[in-house]
């Protein structure tokens, strides 16, 4: 039933990048949880001759905080994220997206890096990570480089990763107490459903002024995108109901949704307007609550 392919099972990251380096013109893909790639292979959307499985590389399955950075190893699963108090504390939107991610069996295998690497504009973990200004670490046999997630995607299912590179980690600065991070996924059901529109918002504030705004939009453009014009309207201002409404309308203007089986472009645009408004207002309220408590 499947196309035939070879499979390599490296025991370490070093072995894995060496295996990627010697592709010798053989169409090679990296296999993590398989919840996306195996479906693509079965549908013959991709036809690899060789897969390199990361199943045995436990060093890539970790969540750690070093100084101001939180780092998630690329093979960390969605279930690992749900079990992590560190992610709950320092990546609230990411934890929220894991709660509406597919079903249990998929959450037990699907990885953070796989969700990025599959390149889908509907990838649930990507808007939260983008709203957190996350970086992607790419490793090959000669070293590693760090790419902001905001620069990672170049087009629909296209990215800056070279064929010999492996996503090894995702990291971001631990947000302080003066930072709020929210996510909402609009879909037919809470579980086992593909996103119609996903929005993640991060707000930072000082002295009653919004010092940082990130609005990341999923499933409304060829890539998960930032609503940069909306962000610019929010940054540097004290947020009011009117300003939040204007910025949300701007976000709806900026996105480039399509009609498909799940929703019309018009409906997605409306969803961006409503969800951005709701999440920005909620995040702004979170910040004020934090101020009152501290």
């Amino acid at each position: 039933m499947f196309a035939e392919f070879d499979l390599e099972m490296p025991n370490s990251l070093d072995e894995a990048v060496l295996a990627l380096a010697r592709s010798d013109g053989i169409e090679t893909l990296t296999l993590a949880g398989g919840s996306s790639l195996m479906v693509d292979i079965r549908a013959r959307r991709v036809v690899p001759e060789r897969l390199i499985s990361l199943a045995r590389i436990n060093e890539l399955r970790r969540i750690e905080i070093l100084g101001p950075r939180i780092t998630i190893g690329s093979r960390t699963t969605v279930s690992d994220i749900l079990r992590s108090n560190q992610v709950a504390e320092h990546g609230a939107a990411l934890a929220a997206s894991a709660e509406v991610f597919a079903g249990q069996m998929v959450r037990n295998v699907a990885t953070v890096a796989g969700n990025i690497a599959c390149g889908s504009p509907a990838a649930d973990l990507v808007p939260p990570l983008l709203s957190l200004d996350a970086d992607v670490v790419l490793t090959n046999a000669s070293g590693f480089r760090t790419v902001p997630l905001a620069d990672y995607f170049t087009g629909f299912k296209q990215d800056v990763r070279r064929p010999d590179e492996l996503i090894t980690a995702i990291s971001w600065d631990v947000p302080g107490a003066k930072c709020a991070n929210r996510f909402y996924k609009l879909a037919r059901r809470k579980g086992d459903a593909i996103t119609v529109t996903g929005v993640a918002v991060t707000l930072g504030a000082a002295n009653g002024v919004c010092t940082k705004a990130r609005v990341a939009l999923g499933a409304v453009a060829p890539i998960v995108m930032r609503a940069r014009a909306a962000e610019a309207m929010l940054e540097g201002s004290t947020l009011t109901v009117e300003l939040i409404e204007e910025a949300s309308l701007k976000a709806a203007e900026e996105c480039q949704p399509i009609d498909d089986i799940r929703a019309s472009a018009d409906y997605r645009r409306h969803a961006v307007h409503m969800l951005t408004r709701r999440l920005v207002a909620g995040a702004w309220a979170d910040l004020h609550l934090a101020t009152e408590v501290s």
């Binding site: 499979l7 398989g34 195996m38 199943a55 069996m105 295998v109």
Partner: peptide, 10 residues
């Protein structure tokens, strides 16, 4: 796990 998404070797 879903056994349909899992290669036996793994």
């Amino acid at each position: 796990i879903d056994s349909c998404l899992t290669l036996a070797w793994t």
